[in-house]
Every structure is written in structure tokens, then in C-alpha cells.
Design a protein around this nucleic acid. Structure first.
Length: 621
RNA sequence: GAGCCGGUAGCUCAGCCGGUAGAGCAGCAGACUUUUAAUCUGUUGGUCGAGGGUUCGAAUCCCUCCCGGCUCACCA
């Protein structure tokens, strides 16, 4: 019943299209209903095929029918778009319109037209726009190097201005192919014009296809750097991969957040800023590794599956090992393993990898996130402050080009400017509560007074929270507007930091800092507790907290105690939330903008359900 | 987990005081030998997120559910 329309559509008179329909019948239209049922059987998602996709599938069938390979893999490009733009910028002669001649020739002036030698070049990429104008066609092609083009294009524009030409308003990071029918009439007609009597008589090239073209560089009448396609022993332009699905609107692009994140591949194709964000993310990782490697740190990988929960206060994901029949946690932090390695003599050690925390999602939280942790023997948390601010300033220059970055907006809507030049400000929790919260020393030591203040401010504080935890939470609420610029917050109470070393003068506090930038926590570090007896007692205190109902406590890790008993050198360790750092350096306010595939509810649940109903109907009809 | 907002053509969106769907782009057909969101002419394309209810009649009103966004809660 649901398919009642299909045969009608198939039989509907199409005028000039009817011949095509009958020709196509073998491949799609004639077997429409049975094929649909078949799709439903092997993959429900195939039901999404629409008219546009059926046309494109027909084009692939037409290529096959002509005895050609629809997905060839023998095309090897000799230049990227970056190479091409560099060639145009390399010689002032190439700034104005010209046509190309063989690279062995000398520049000539022929009938008023400038001709410059240009190398025979092969380029490949995805077609983002097609503009056929009679017997010439313009293609906008995107390749792997195109991510670098915003800068290259700007340079190109600067050069054009220098040369007295108007600035081009090129859309996106692409390179242009120019195809004149004269150069290869057979290919031109096959790709852009209907062909009488062929299996598919319409154009074969679509936006979204991957193509390979060959020819010589030249500039169009309007000075656009282009590749002038020409036939050689092979066609001037070949489709290397046919896209079955159409790309989003060339002007509005893809803006629906859900689709962007679920189909990140499309997002990356059509949104230049997304490609740029992840290129920068790669540079951040590269920069971190370079910085630490130069400082003599060794990169390691420790277990992601932990038998014992530890290293942070967080709820875990649980999993199970079948053969051993034992429960395992996905790690919430690598800390305890990394310090075992320092015991083992790797005195400077770091790991960049995923942590998993079973908590809610937000603009700043993804269940799996990338954490850098590094540990340095014979150093204190104060040494690490210097190391961290140096690292971040260096990364900012490498990735964003300056220690001054903009991130988000101020209350008045203007861009918020953040200065990442070292040194960063240092603030003690107690001082913050006093100065920004208007609290007296007596109040700060009085849990009741602090909770009352929290209530006044509308800050929710867990009833299990100890005095120290109340102090920290209240501080974070009060200080937030004051810690837009990078700030090290220090003097954390011991009970909130079971792995940190006590301060020698004030044993109720630990030698720890958290780094806040733009109001979000970027880093957490402390001098490590290396007294095995104290560590054992603190684990026991954690167990006591757990008994009271705190779900985010650590478990007793006797092997870690044993490691400490062998002797952990005086060590300081630091964790940096890499995703959040990338957010800062890419002006992304949502963590999902810096994670390629952020966690989302599965999309197939509903679709499969729908498809089931549909195929059920189909079988009945 | 709670509150608010949203889901309409491949994409971006109108339509939402009930009368069975529109635009632009993409697609298809035609014209055009240097375009820049090319232009001009014609045209195809829709289980209006899913299910149920009210009604002669539902994209529109009501209920339930699914998915997403924002804010909050928990956290880094």
C-alpha cells in the first residue's frame, strides 16, 4: 500500500524522458519496487535513496555499460592546490591573465594575448561547483591541500592588489579547473551534455564527484588561477569517484548541528572553518609532543582498562572481560600508572590519551575526552606552573599565531580577548573568597557560614561535601567572572586532593594548582604525595567518603602503595584537558566542535524502526 | 535527570488563527566559448520526526514517544 505510488510513477508519461526511462529500466526504474524491498532486506538505510541518488546511480551504470571502470584508481596527481597557487605567486609575470604554452617555450605575445610557459600538471579533488557556460566549463575543485588555502588565497589577493588588479572574492578553499570544449570535445560532451543514444543521456559529472584533470596552468580573463584542461593520451578530465549522494546547498552549506556532527565527513567537505579547527587541533598535539620531547619527557601508553578505580574523582564506565570473567573500568585517569613509571625510573613521562567519565554531556564535557598528563621528578607544582604557562603561550603562537586570542564574547557582545603571554596570574582560594566573596577568615573556616553564602548566591553544594570541598566549590562560583584571563588557583584543601602532597607549613592544604582560562578549568597539577603511609591513610579516608554515599571516590590501590614503598622521587604532575585547550585556541565555545565524532545518541534506532515498518508494508503489498 | 525551543524537498528555510504543501540552491531539458552564489526559459522532486486522538477535513489543535539545540544539575 505504501508503494502504490511507485508503479504509477514508473508508468507516468515523461515525454522526451521516456526513452531514458526505458533505457534505465534495466538498472533502476523498471525493477523499482522489487529493488526497494531488496534494499530493505539488506540495509534499511538504502531506503533513503531519492530521485537525485537514483539518477547518479544510473550514471554509474552507464559508465559500466560503456565498458569503463566507474571507480578507477590509476590517476596520480602531480600537484596540489597549494603547489598550484605557489606556482602562480612565484613570478610577477603570472599575476595577470595569460594563456599557457609548453614549459620549454619562451614567453610570447601573440595577437595581443600574453602566453607564458607553464608545466603540464595533473590535479585531483572533489568538485564543489560546476559552472557550464556554453562550450566552456568552470569547476571548483577541493583537494587535501585546500585546507591551507585561506592564507594562500589572501597572499594571492595581496599580490593581485600589488599588480593593480581587483581582489578576488573566491568562495572556499578550492582551485579552479577550466575546460574548453575545443580541448577535448568528446570528454566535454560526455561529462556536460546529454548524449543521444547512450545508456545515460544526461550529463555525467555532478557536484560532489572526485575528478582528476590534466593540463597547464593559466589565468582566466578575470585573473583566476586555473588549470586549463587538455587531452593527452588520456581524457582532459576523468571522474575518479562518482558521488551518489548530493552535497548540501553551495551557498547555505550545512548548518544543522545534528547533521554536521553525525555526518562529520560532509561537514569537513563543505565547511572550511571546520577543516581549519581540526588542522589546528593536530598542531596542538604536535606542539605538545614537541615541547615535552625537547624537555626530555618520554611518551608512554598505560592501560585504558583498569581493574581498580583511581587517579581522579569521577564516576566510571564499567565493562567486563569474558575470558577472565572479571569486571573492568574504562579509565578515568592515567595518573597512578604514570607515577608507577616514575618509580620505575622514567623520571619525565607523559601520556596523551582518552579518559572516560560516566557523566552528563555539556558544552564542556564529552564522555570520552583527551587528557595530557605529564610527571616530572625533582620538581614541584610551582615548577610546573612555569612549564604550563610556557607551553600554552608557545602553543598559542604556533597554532593561533599570537599569545593574544579571542574566545567567546563578553557580556556586551564584544569578542572576549584572552592574553596567554606568560606569566599567568596566581590566586589562592582563601584570597579569592576574601576579596571577591567578601568573606572573613572566620567565615571561610566555618562550613555553615559558607553554605549560607552559597545559598544566597544560588550555588548548589552537595550535602556530602566536606569543608574543603565547600570552600572550593564556593570559590569556583564566586571567582568565575574574575578568572577569564589565565589564572593559577592554589591552596586546595587536603581532603579534596587525596593524591597530592601536603604543604609543609599548612598540612591541611596541598601543593596544588588548577589553571582556569575563560572561566573553564584547563589544567590541574600538584606536587605528588610520595609518602606511602600517608597515601594509605588517604585512600582509607576515600573509602569512608564512599561509605557516606559519595559516588566519586577512589578505591584502595594496594599495588600503587607498594610502588610508593619502593620510593617515588619527589615529583610534580600535571593534567591538561586537551579538548578544552583546543577550544581556547580555535575559538570554539562547544567541546563538540573540537572532537571529530562527539558522543551522540544513536541515530539508527528510529530509522531501523521505521524501515522495519516500511519493509513490512512492502512485503504485504 | 529538569525546563524552554526546534524537527516541512538532497541542503537552507517559509507555511502553523484547521480546507490535503511553497521559495532559493541542487537535479532534469534548452540557450550561452572566461564564470565567481553566472544568467535566462521550462520542469521533476515531499510517509510535513513517529504513533495515537479531536474533526467532515490536521503540516497546523491535543496526548505519548523519538531525535536535536540551549539553559540548569553532575563533572575536567
Amino acid at each position: 500500500m505504501r508503494f502504490a505510488a511507485s508503479p504509477i510513477r514508473g508508468l507516468r508519461p515523461r515525454g522526451p524522458r521516456s526513452r531514458t526511462q526505458s533505457t534505465l529500466g534495466r538498472t533502476t526504474a523498471g525493477a523499482l519496487a522489487p529493488r526497494r524491498t531488496c534494499f530493505a532486506q539488506w540495509n534499511p538505510r538504502m531506503l533513503e535513496r531519492n530521485e537525485l541518488m537514483r539518477q547518479r546511480l544510473a550514471k554509474i551504470a552507464a559508465v559500466r555499460a560503456a565498458g569503463q571502470v566507474p571507480y578507477p584508481n590509476d590517476f596520480v596527481p602531480t600537484a596540489t592546490s597549494t603547489d598550484a597557487y605557489a606556482w602562480f605567486a612565484a613570478d610577477p609575470l603570472r599575476l595577470a591573465p595569460f594563456s599557457a604554452i609548453a614549459e620549454t617555450s619562451e614567453p610570447v605575445l601573440d595577437a595581443g594575448a600574453v602566453k607564458l610557459p607553464a608545466p603540464w600538471t595533473r590535479m585531483a579533488g572533489r568538485v564543489l561547483a560546476i559552472n557550464v557556460k556554453g562550450k566552456v566549463a568552470f569547476l571548483r575543485v577541493q583537494d587535501r591541500a585546500a585546507v591551507h588555502l585561506p592564507a594562500a588565497r589572501k597572499n594571492d589577493d595581496d599580490l593581485r592588489e600589488t599588480a593593480g588588479l581587483e581582489r578576488r572574492n573566491q568562495e572556499g578553499a578550492t582551485f579552479q579547473f577550466f575546460f574548453s570544449r575545443d580541448a577535448d570535445p568528446e570528454t566535454f560532451d560526455a561529462l556536460f551534455k546529454p548524449t543521444e543514444g547512450a545508456a545515460w543521456d544526461g550529463p555525467r559529472l555532478d557536484i560532489g564527484d572526485i575528478v582528476g584533470g590534466q593540463g597547464r596552468y593559466f589565468r582566466t580573463k578575470t585573473s583566476e588561477p586555473s588549470l586549463h584542461l587538455a587531452a593527452n593520451d588520456e581524457p582532459a578530465l576523468r571522474i575518479l569517484t562518482k558521488a551518489v549522494r548530493p552535497l548540501p546547498d553551495k551557498w547555505h552549506g550545512l548548518s544543522d548541528t545534528e547533521t554536521r556532527l553525525r555526518q562529520r565527513y560532509v561537514d569537513l567537505i563543505v565547511n572550511d572553518d571546520v577543516r581549519e579547527t581540526f588542522r589546528r587541533r593536530a598542531k596542538v598535539l604536535q606542539g605538545i609532543r614537541g615541547f615535552l620531547d625537547r624537555a626530555g619527557y618520554v611518551e608512554v601508553e598505560t592501560p585504558m582498562m583498569h581493574p581498580i578505580l583511581g587517579g581522579a574523582a569521577a564516576r566510571p564506565f564499567r565493562t567486563h572481560h569474558n575470558a577472565l570473567d572479571m569486571p573492568l573500568y574504562l579509565r578515568i585517569a592515567p595518573e597512578l600508572y604514570l607515577k608507577r613509571l616514575v618509580v620505575g625510573g622514567i623520571e619525565r613521562v607523559y601520556e596523551i590519551n582518552r579518559n572516560f567519565r560516566n557523566e552528563g554531556l555539556s558544552v564542556r564535557h564529552n564522555p570520552e575526552f583527551t587528557m595530557l598528563e605529564f610527571y616530572r621528578a625533582y620538581a614541584t607544582y610551582e615548577d610546573l606552573m612555569v612549564e604550563v604557562e610556557t607551553l600554552i603561550a608557545e602553543l598559542a603562537v604556533a597554532v593561533a599565531g599570537s599569545t593574544t586570542v579571542t574566545w567567546g564574547k563578553n557580556a556586551d557582545g564584544t569578542p572576549r580577548v584572552i592574553e596567554l603571554q606568560a606569566p599567568f596570574r596566581r590566586v589562592k582560594i582563601r584570597d579569592g573568597l576574601r576579596e571577591w566573596g567578601g568573606l572573613t577568615d572566620a567565615q571561610i573556616a566555618d562550613e555553615g557560614a559558607l553554605r549560607k553564602k552559597a545559598e544566597e548566591l544560588g550555588v548548589h553544594i552537595d550535602s556530602h561535601a566536606s569543608l574543603g570541598k565547600v570552600q572550593v566549590e564556593l570559590f569556583e562560583a564566586i571567582a568565575e567572572p574574575h578568572i577569564v584571563q589565565p589564572t593559577f588557583v592554589m591552596e586546595y584543601p587536603a581532603e579534596t586532593s587525596p593524591l597530592a602532597r601536603r604543604n609543609d607549613q599548612q598540612p591541611d592544604f596541598v601543593d596544588r594548582f588548577e589553571l582556569f582560562i575563560g572561566g573553564i578549568e584547563i589544567s590541574n597539577a600538584f606536587s605528588e604525595l610520595n609518602d606511602p603511609v600517608d597515601q594509605h591513610e588517604r585512600f582509607e579516608a576515600q573509602l569512608l567518603q564512599k561509605a557516606k554515599g559519595d559516588e566519586e571516590t577512589m578505591e584502595m590501590d594496594l599495588d600503587y602503595i607498594r610502588a610508593l614503598e619502593y620510593g617515588l622521587p619527589p615529583t610534580a604532575g600535571c593534567g591538561i584537558g586537551v579538548d578544552r585547550l583546543v577550544m581556547l585556541l580555535t575559538n570554539s565555545e562547544n567541546i563538540r566542535e573540537v572532537i571529530l565524532f562527539p558522543h551522540m545518541r544513536p541515530e539508527l534506532a528510529q530509522k531501523a524502526d521505521n524501515a522495519e515498518q516500511t519493509s513490512g508494508d512492502g512485503a504485504g503489498a
